[in-house]
Design a protein around this nucleic acid. Structure first.
Lengths: 146, 146
DNA sequence: CTAAGCCTTAAAGTGCGGTTCAAGGTCAAG
DNA sequence: CTTGACCTTGAACCGCACTTTAAGGCTTAG
C-alpha cells in the first residue's frame, strides 16, 4: 500500500502520515525499489489507533510512548488504560471548570442586560466582566479556551 | 507608575504588558524623560479588564477590537456583550462535547477492565479505544484537549 | 564613579499538531 | 519519450499567547 492509499483509507493527509512517522507514532514501513513507502495492511489499524487516541484527547507524545512499547514487543495495554484514566480525570476537571465558567457568564450576562448598553464609559464596561465570587483556583495562570 | 509596578499591581509580567501594548490591548502610556513607560492609575483597571476577558475565554483579538472601540471614544458595551454571548454558546457546546467524551471514556474503561491487560497483542490494544457509537460530528477535524 | 536594579528594543523561541513549500525522483499511460 | 499523477526530502510556516534572549540605557545609593 502506498502512502496516498493509506491516507485515503484512514482519512488523513499524506503529510500527516509522514509527520506521525517522524514523531514515532507509526512504524517506518519498507520501501519499494523506487524509495516509496510500502505499507502492510496493519498500518491502517495502527494509524486509526493513533486517531482514536487523539479523539479521546491523548497527546501525540503519550501515544508515541504506547507505540514505542508496542514496537519493543511489550504489552502496553496497562499503560494505555492508565492514560485513559488520567484523561478521564482531566476531562471531568475541565467539565467542572467550564460549567463554573458557564454559570459565571450567565450571571454576568444577566447583570449586563440590566444596563443601558448605549451609555458605556470604560468603568461601566469593565464592570461587565467583573466576577464577584472569585474563580476557584486563584493562580490558574493559563486560560484555555476550548 | 512604572511598568514593573503596574505588572505587580495586576499580577502579570512586564513582558506581557509590552506584548499587550504591541497587540493593541493597552493604550500606549506617556514616557518619562528617560524613555520609561509612565502609566496613569486607570491602566490597572484597563489591564485587569483584559485579564478578566481572557478569564472568560475571549481571545486577545476580540479584546483588542473592544479596546480599539473604546480608544475611539465609542461605546463598545454592546459589542462586549455580543462577544460574551457568543462565548457562552461556545462554552455550552464544549461542555456537551466533553460530556459525551466522558461517557465514551467511561464505556471504554469499563470494557477495558474486563480484559486481561497482561495479554495484549496490538489488535487487542487497538480495541481498547474503539468507540462503537460514532462521535457526533464525523468531520470534526480538530481534537482540542482542554 | 560604580554597581545594582530598574527600564528600553527587536528578534527569536516555545508548545502543539500539524500544513505548506520548493525542488526533485518514480512510474504508468499514451 | 513525454506527460501527469504520484512519491521523496528538508525546511519553513501557522495560530495563539506569550517568554526568553541579547544588547544596551536610566536612576539612585553608596
Amino acid at each position: 500500500m502506498l502512502i496516498g492509499e493509506l491516507a485515503a483509507a484512514a482519512g488523513v493527509s499524506t503529510a500527516t502520515i509522514r509527520f506521525y512517522e517522524r514523531s514515532g507514532l507509526l512504524t517506518p514501513p519498507e520501501r519499494t525499489s523506487g524509495g516509496y513507502r510500502d505499507y502492510p495492511d496493519r498500518a491502517v489499524a495502527e494509524l486509526r489507533f493513533v486517531r482514536a487516541g487523539q479523539a479521546v484527547g491523548l497527546t501525540l507524545t503519550e501515544l508515541a510512548e504506547i507505540t514505542a512499547f508496542r514496537d519493543r514487543g511489550e504489552a502496553p495495554c496497562g499503560e494505555l488504560v492508565a492514560l485513559m484514566e488520567h484523561r478521564m480525570v482531566e476531562v471531568e476537571h475541565r467539565i467542572n471548570e467550564l460549567d463554573q465558567l458557564r454559570r459565571d457568564l450567565a450571571v454576568l450576562l444577566d447583570a449586563a442586560h440590566a444596563h443601558n448598553l448605549d451609555d458605556c464609559p470604560p468603568a461601566t464596561m469593565y464592570g461587565l466582566l467583573e466576577r464577584r465570587e472569585p474563580q476557584p483556583s486563584r493562580d490558574a495562570v493559563a486560560f484555555p479556551r476550548t
